[in-house]
Simulated assay, not measured.
Amino acid sequence: MTQHLVLFDVDGTLVDSQHIIHATLVETLARHGREPLDRAFMLGGVGLSLIPAMRRLLGPEADEALVAAAAGTYREVFHRLRGDPAHAELLFPGAAEVVAGLAARGDVVLGIVTGKTRRGIDYILDRFGWRAAFATVQTAEDAPSKPDPGMVLLAMAATGFRADATLVVGDTSWDMTMARAAGAGAVGVAWGNHTPDMLREGGAQRVIDRFEDLAALVGAPLTAEAS
C-alpha cells in the first residue's frame, strides 16, 4: 500500500480564526498610532510568521524596532482575546470529519505546517483533541516563514516521506508556493484568506470548495489548474 503524507495549514484552512485575528490586528495598529487597513488586506497576511506579517502590515517605512514592538503587541492582544468567548476559534465545516477520516486511513500520515508559534498550535491541538492525529507539527519557530519550503521539508524528513508522496492543504498563496517549492502537491481551500485565483497564482493544482472533496485527491495525480 502506497503511503501519503498530508500536511495541513491551520488558520483559514482547519480553523476559522478570521474574527480574532482581525480584531487583534485592529487593536495592534491602534496601539501603535495606526488606522485600520482594508480587512481583506489585513487578513491576506495570515499564514506568514508574525514578524513578516507585521512588516507587511506596517509598510516599508516601518523600522525593525516598530515591527518587533507591534509583534509583541499582537501576541499580548491575541492571547487576551482568546479568553473571550466572543472571539472563539471554530473549526470550518467538515474539518473534524476529514481529519478523523484521513487519520483512520492506513495509507495516510497527517502533519501540520503553520505560521503559528508552538504555544499557539499546542492550544489548537489540545482544544480539538488532535494530539494523536498529527505525526509531525512544524511551526514558525522551526523554519523560515512561508512561502519558504522549510516547514514542508522538515515534515517530510521527520516522517520519511518523499515530495512526490506529500500533499499540502492550505488557504493562502504562501501555502501553495511553499508546497511547490518543496516539490509537494498543492491543494487550496476556497473558504480561507486568499481567493481561488490567488491560490492558483501561488501554484495550487486544485482548489476545493468543500472539505469532503479532499479525501479523493490524496494519492491522485494532480495537474495545475488554469488561473
Rank of each mutant, 00 (worst) to 15 (best):
A88M: 00
L154G: 03
A95G: 06
I112T: 06
F161R: 01
P93G: 05
A104C: 09
A70S: 13
F78T: 00
P93F: 03
R56W: 15
L125N: 07
R118C: 02
L153M: 15
A181E: 11
V99G: 01
A184Q: 01
R82L: 14
R131T: 15
L66C: 04
T117S: 13
P144D: 13
E141T: 11
A68E: 14
S173G: 13
R82Y: 00
V187W: 07
A103P: 15
A53V: 07
W130C: 02
L110C: 07
V98E: 11
D63T: 08
I112F: 09
A181M: 12
I121C: 00
A143P: 04
H87G: 01
Y123H: 09
R75S: 05
Y74C: 08
G150P: 03
R105Y: 04
E97G: 07
G101P: 10
E89K: 00
A68S: 12
R127M: 03
L167F: 11
L154K: 12
A68N: 09
M176H: 05
L125I: 03
S145Q: 10
D122K: 04
A103S: 15
A69C: 02
Q138C: 15
A62L: 12
A65R: 14
V113W: 00
A155F: 06
T136G: 04
L102E: 14
H79E: 11
T114K: 04
M176C: 08
E76Q: 10
G83M: 01
R105Q: 11
A86W: 02
E64T: 10
R131S: 12
A181N: 14
G183R: 02
R118F: 09
R162Y: 11
D107A: 05
F134Y: 06
L90S: 00
M176A: 08
A163D: 10
D164N: 13
L110A: 04
L81H: 06
M178I: 06
K146P: 01
L91S: 06
A65E: 11
T117R: 06
A157E: 14
A184Y: 02
A103H: 13
W130E: 01
L91H: 02
A190L: 09
F78D: 01
D175N: 12
Y123T: 09
W174K: 11
M156T: 04
S145G: 11
R180Q: 15
A158C: 10
W130H: 07
D126Y: 00
V99Q: 03
A96C: 00
A133E: 15
A143G: 09
R180C: 10
A186C: 03
R118Y: 08
A71S: 10
A190H: 09
E97M: 07
A70L: 06
M178P: 00
P144L: 12
L154T: 02
S145R: 09
G170Q: 00
V169M: 06
R82D: 08
I112L: 13
V187K: 06
A165I: 08
